[in-house]
Design a protein around this nucleic acid. Sequence first.
DNA 1: CTATGGCCCTGGTTGC
DNA 2: TGCAACCAGGGCCATA
Length: 284
Amino acid sequence: MPELPEVETTARLLRGPLVGRQVSGLEVQWPRSLGGQEEAEVREHVRGARITGVTRRAKLVIIELARRGRRIGILAVHLRMTGRLVVMDKRTDPGRFARVSLLLDRGVLHFLDVRKFGRMTWHADPTDLFARYGPEPLSEEFSVAWLRRALGGRKRALKPLLLDQSFLAGLGNIYVDEVLFGAGLHPLRRSDRVPGKKVALLHGMIQTVLREAIEREGSSFDEFYRTPEGQPGAYQEQFKVYGRTGKPCRACGRAIRRLVVGQRGTHICTRCQPAPRPLSSPRS
DNA sequence: CTATGGCCCTGGTTGC
DNA sequence: TGCAACCAGGGCCATA
């Protein structure tokens, strides 16, 4: 459940069950999920602390902790490809994919992760962590003017740039494909060659797609990756190109094509997203 | 600065 | 049916 809408949904769903809970312990089934941090050290920090908030920054779920009413730091959870956060009863077996478990005064927060790419890390001061990310696409900071300047200052293909979390936070492979289709832009178009009018359209698409996905609680097309009791998410029903290879474009009817851009599966309509003119002939 | 490929991991799907 | 190859919503790192 990895992109911004899924992470936002996760944070919102966890807020109720977690805020106000006190941490009583930490169990680590897969040490590498702590991203190199020492288990004993992390446990020391969180044990006895109170959860005061569950929020999101980029694709990170942020669990805010306090001691005696004073904030002491955060746990940052990156779900990567297959991570999930679920609250269970203490008696419930979380299964073989549990990697880290945060014991609470009531229940347990399990970090499940089939592929083990995800991370849960402790940060006394998250300033530096957050600074590594670009602006939040649903914030004021992310304006048309900002996007125009930012795109113009780079010479990269649009898709890899939009996937770059230090450029803009939160977009992933699915939503970038959906956004680029919506804006009628080819993923290989150079960022500094997006026409001015298209910049505003792209900006609007990014916000619209993300807002609508959040409203539908994200996408979860694969049963396997769903939260056991959580809502499945319904945005996948709106996909216009992602995972629709060979199916007719909802706008023009032409078959959706799959290509590879920056090692990521990419879905486009070749009529609605015309190929950019090659910059320089590959070799002449 | 930008592009590319390997790597971290496991499991489901596809094709022969 | 069996099995290998390929695919997956992410991101870090080294190299060119």
